Simulated scan of single mutants.
Amino acid sequence: MDWTASLQGLVGGVLIGLSAVWLMGSLGRIAGISGIVGGLITQRPKGDSAWRLAFLAGLVSGPLVVMAVGGGLGNVANVPGAVIGEPAGGVPLMLLAGLLVGLGTGLGSGCTSGHGVCGLARLAPRSMAATAMFLVAAIVTVYVVRHLLGGGV
Rank of each mutant, 00 (worst) to 15 (best):
A88D: 12
G110A: 01
T112Q: 03
M94I: 12
V145A: 03
G25L: 12
V11P: 02
L7N: 07
T4P: 02
A88C: 05
V142Y: 15
A121H: 10
G85C: 07
L59S: 05
S26I: 10
R44N: 05
V144C: 07
V83L: 06
A137S: 15
I30V: 15
V83C: 06
W3M: 15
G110S: 04
V21H: 09
S19P: 02
L15E: 11
G116P: 03
L93E: 07
G62F: 05
V140E: 06
G47D: 11
G114K: 00
V79R: 05
G17T: 07
P63G: 06
I30F: 01
A138N: 12
S109E: 13
D2P: 02
G39I: 01
L103T: 11
L10D: 10
G90N: 08
P125T: 05
G89F: 08
I139M: 10
T4C: 08
R29S: 07
L123P: 05
G114N: 00
G98D: 13
A57N: 08
V79Q: 09
L96R: 10
G85R: 07
M67G: 09
A50C: 12
I139V: 13
A88T: 09
T4K: 06
L23K: 04
D2R: 05
G38K: 01
L100M: 13
L148G: 08
L40F: 08
G110R: 00
L10H: 10
G81V: 12
L135K: 06
L103E: 13
G28M: 12
L64T: 02
S127M: 05
L40D: 01
G58Q: 08
G114E: 00
A129M: 15
G13T: 09
G90Q: 02
P63V: 03
L148P: 05
L15M: 10
V83W: 06
L107E: 12
T4W: 09
S34K: 01
G28A: 11
N78H: 15
L93S: 14
R146N: 14
G47A: 15
G17S: 07
G12R: 00
L56K: 02
L15C: 11
I36P: 00
I36H: 01
R146W: 04
H115E: 04
S6V: 15
G98H: 06
R146F: 06
G89V: 02
G119M: 00
P87T: 09
G106S: 14
V145I: 08
P80A: 07
G12P: 00
A68S: 13
G81C: 09
